[in-house]
Design a protein around this nucleic acid. Structure first.
Lengths: 189, 189
DNA sequence: AATAGAAGCGGACCGCGGTCCGTTTAGGCG
DNA sequence: CGCCTAAACGGACCGCGGTCCGCTTCTATT
């Protein structure tokens, strides 16, 4: 093992908090795509370069912002109460998972889109939790075949941009849920 | 009817051809993401503003470039020889369609990604042909339910960025095809 | 052929994401 | 307590996508 990857200095940590707090404030105030990196920097009282060193890219910063809510959600999936968390039968959990993910995507649509702009590595990491979980549940259900591919197919209709399109066509969330449940049952068989 | 939307002037048409030709040349020469709008403009012998007036955005220009091959492909789906074109039984057509789309996505990966960067309207228009066609075939197969949602789910595993991720994990196209065939059969039932 | 006015043109200009590098500072050590 | 080095800082700088507006060119009409 390589041990700790980086000890991180105290002022650096303080600055990271300041940046995150500033970014959160600005996003809530003006909406996510009226927030520039330079604004975040000056609001946080640091230089632009500092922001980029901590978070790599704009996407990275948004992803970090998103992480706080996303982590809580993941926790409730992994160890929360049924039917989302463990304890319920797998099919029930899977359906609950889809509904929950759908609602979450709608709620955080703007931030998710800002945090998921075509870059492969980061976006895959963010999305992979959902894929992994669905795959796991499919496994528990005894589904055979390419579970990864099946998981990707299952999650696609819940994708932020897809759902937004549906809503623009006056399709209700309930109808999406119903369609998704049907899809799940077909795939599970 | 509103009649002709815009008659288009002769020099404008000439310039559009010049821009398209220049863009094609540059993309082939340097690769799609080493081509800037300014370069295209100067190579075409026009001003930058002209390029943007014709094609709106960089994405728009790339989409126009892509259109030439994409249109040919669509034609072969609509009126080409079976099993891709009409004449074969619907399930066979659907499977052929998926395989063909997968190969096309791999072949034009770079250009497709450049032409599909998060903007809703344009990208949906481009993707909608595939969705519409799959939906149509599902209808012919007598599938019931939310065919739009099912179509989106079916197409997701063929998406450029998904396939690239799979290939990075050393998964062969044949395996993707096999997984997809399986998915189709589950959904069709 | 002359004219008028719409359509097109082009390049200066702007804002933002991202990089670079000379300067500052934290904090372990003698 | 002062030093020394690696880490962190910050803002000038760059390139590109996209806009704007005063000037040019086409073409319909008579």
């Amino acid at each position: 093992m390589a041990g700790e990857p980086a000890p991180e200095r105290a002022d650096a940590a303080r600055n990271r908090e300041a940046i995150l707090a500033a970014a959160l404030r600005l996003v809530q105030a003006r909406g996510v795509d009226c927030v520039t990196m330079e604004t975040v920097a000056s609001e946080a009282g640091v230089g632009k370069g500092t922001v980029f060193r901590r978070f790599e890219t704009r996407e990275g910063l948004m992803a970090a912002l998103l992480n706080e809510s996303e982590t809580a959600w993941q926790a409730s999936v992994i160890s929360g109460p049924p039917p989302l968390g463990p304890g319920a039968p797998p099919l029930e959990r899977l359906l609950a998972f889809g509904h929950s993910r759908l609602r979450t995507n709608v709620t955080h649509a703007a931030l998710i889109k800002a945090a998921t702009g075509s870059s492969s590595a980061r976006s895959r990491a963010a999305a992979s939790f959902a894929v992994m979980h669905v795959r796991h549940l499919l496994g528990e259900l005894g589904v055979s075949g390419d579970l990864l591919l099946l998981s990707i197919a299952l999650l696609a209709p819940l994708d932020v941009v897809v759902v937004e399109q549906q809503q623009a066509d006056d399709i209700s969330l309930e109808r999406i849920e119903a369609g998704w449940d049907d899809l799940v049952r077909r795939v599970v068989g």
